[in-house]
């Protein structure tokens, strides 16, 4: 029996480790992030060095909260797609409306000669200025959209508890994780 005890102990430790812990190591520094799941509760521990460890987040989080977060990110992504479609439509329709429709309206209103005179000039510089003036804000708002891929990656790796175990920068990973956790906390407000 005495001989068996260490064996049982190692087996138990092994099982415990298997009970879903994700350890993420840094390639350059000795920072580590542990994601532990016990009885449906997920906890995070961040170690900057061997002894400097702390718990991230208020308390433990549940799996459903992360599932909700994943769903929310999906919704945001589809919303962004719709937004992009609207922007693309606007970018396509605007020049047509701006020059063609205006011209047709003016000709209908004032007759051919005076209508063409009153319509906006057809010169290249004018066109460039008018279209650029609208395109730049549109392009800017497309570029300013939040990049959700990092958040999606972190949420999924917490849910599945696997993924990269050695990554470039744990610090950046922790920042994205913080972002995900703040959003979960915000839903509790």
């Amino acid at each position: 029996m005495k001989k068996l005890l260490p064996l049982i102990a190692t087996a138990l430790i092994g099982l415990n480790a298997m009970a879903s812990t994700l350890e993420i190591r840094d390639q350059k520094t000795d920072h580590k992030l542990f994601v532990m799941e016990e009885e449906g509760k997920i906890e995070f521990k961040y170690c900057e060095g061997a002894s400097d460890c702390r718990v991230l987040g208020m308390k433990s989080y549940t799996r459903t909260e992360f599932e909700e977060q994943a769903k929310e990110i999906e919704e945001q992504q589809s919303f962004q797609k719709v937004e992009n479609a609207i922007y693309a439509g606007a970018a396509f329709l605007f020049p047509i409306v701006f020059f063609k429709a205006e011209r047709i309206m003016m000709v209908e209103k004032l007759g051919k000669v005076r209508g063409l005179e009153a319509a906006m000039p057809k010169s290249f510089g004018y066109k460039l200025g008018a279209i650029g003036g609208i395109m730049l804000p549109i392009a800017n708002s497309v570029l300013m959209q939040e990049d959700l891929s990092d958040k999606e990656h972190v949420t999924n790796s917490v849910l599945t508890l696997d993924g990269d175990d050695q990554i470039n920068s744990v610090e950046q990973y922790v920042e994205v994780l913080g972002e995900v956790l703040t959003e979960i906390e915000m839903r509790r407000l």
Partner: peptide, 17 residues
């Protein structure tokens, strides 16, 4: 600002997007 003012934000690392 909503996120920063939450009492729980003392337990996170955040970076502005």
């Amino acid at each position: 600002l909503t996120k920063v003012l939450m009492p729980s934000s003392a337990y996170f690392e955040q970076r502005m997007a």
